[in-house]
């Protein structure tokens, strides 16, 4: 499990995170929900050591060092994060070079599924294609957790469907997934947990199925409660 405790972060005199505490379990798809600038991306980056926290702690089970972290947790930012001049196959080569758990067969499978041409250059990809490529890079390795930052934002409908398929496939099955989004509608049906962030704090931490069964509310309804008040 990934456990975040009392995370604080200040960014340019604004308190982005003001004591955030939650955890994401393996085998579950957890979603961080919040308005723009609520600190969702910041939390993911903080887990990955790509930005420091002012205060607080982050623990990932079984991970003692950054080296183990990067082998066990993969991060899919909202862009391809490869040089524009690279071809897609160069990017895959990069991942294979540095990650022990890189699974070449799965990478090929995903490339085929998304219909990506390995000879294309990263700089020439459309937003949707870049997102799909990002998923390839993030999912092909045998990691225990996958963090995704805004996987659906700005993507066309058909690409979204393909990405949604991946979510329900065995590729995700045993892993822990932490997703951020501000468009909850599309993926609500996939989620197990939802964490609503407001004013730098956790406003609600809900088990989606439970809320649906017991209160008959969708996550969207809960969101309206939290953010409209």
């Amino acid at each position: 499990m990934i456990r975040i405790e009392n995370a604080h972060k200040r960014y340019r005199w604004r308190k982005v995170l003001d004591g955030v505490t939650f955890s994401a379990e393996k085998g579950q798809i957890t979603c961080l929900v919040g308005m723009n600038g609520a600190g969702k991306s910041t939390l993911l980056k903080a887990i990955m050591g790509l930005t420091p926290l002012s205060k607080g702690s982050i623990r990932v089970d079984g991970v003692g060092s950054k080296r183990e972290l990067y082998e066990k947790v993969s991060f899919i930012p909202d862009h391809a994060a490869m040089p524009g001049g690279y071809r897609l196959e160069d990017g895959l080569q990069f991942m294979a070079d540095y990650y022990k758990r890189w699974n070449e067969a799965r990478a090929n499978e995903l490339m085929a599924f998304f219909r990506l041409d390995p000879r294309d250059r990263v700089g020439n990809l459309s937003k949707g294609t870049a997102a799909k490529y990002g998923l390839v890079l993030g999912l092909a390795a045998d990691t225990e957790f996958v963090l995704m930052d805004e996987p659906f934002s700005g993507i066309d409908v058909f690409s979204r469907e393909m990405i949604g398929e991946v979510f329900s496939s065995r590729l995700i099955e045993d892993r822990g997934v932490l997703v951020t989004t501000h468009e909850i509608g599309e993926i609500e049906y996939l989620l197990d947990r939802a964490i609503l962030l407001k004013d730098g704090k956790v406003a609600r931490d809900i088990d989606c199925e439970q809320v649906r069964d017991e209160q008959g509310k969708s996550v969207l309804d809960v969101m309206r409660e939290v953010y409209r008040s």
């Binding site: 897609l88 090929n108 496939s169 590729l171």
Partner: peptide, 17 residues
Amino acid sequence: MAELKADYRQSVRLKRK
């Protein structure tokens, strides 16, 4: 869990030695 549907198989040659 569903398998991914793939129309064609394409193996990315990690060619650079």
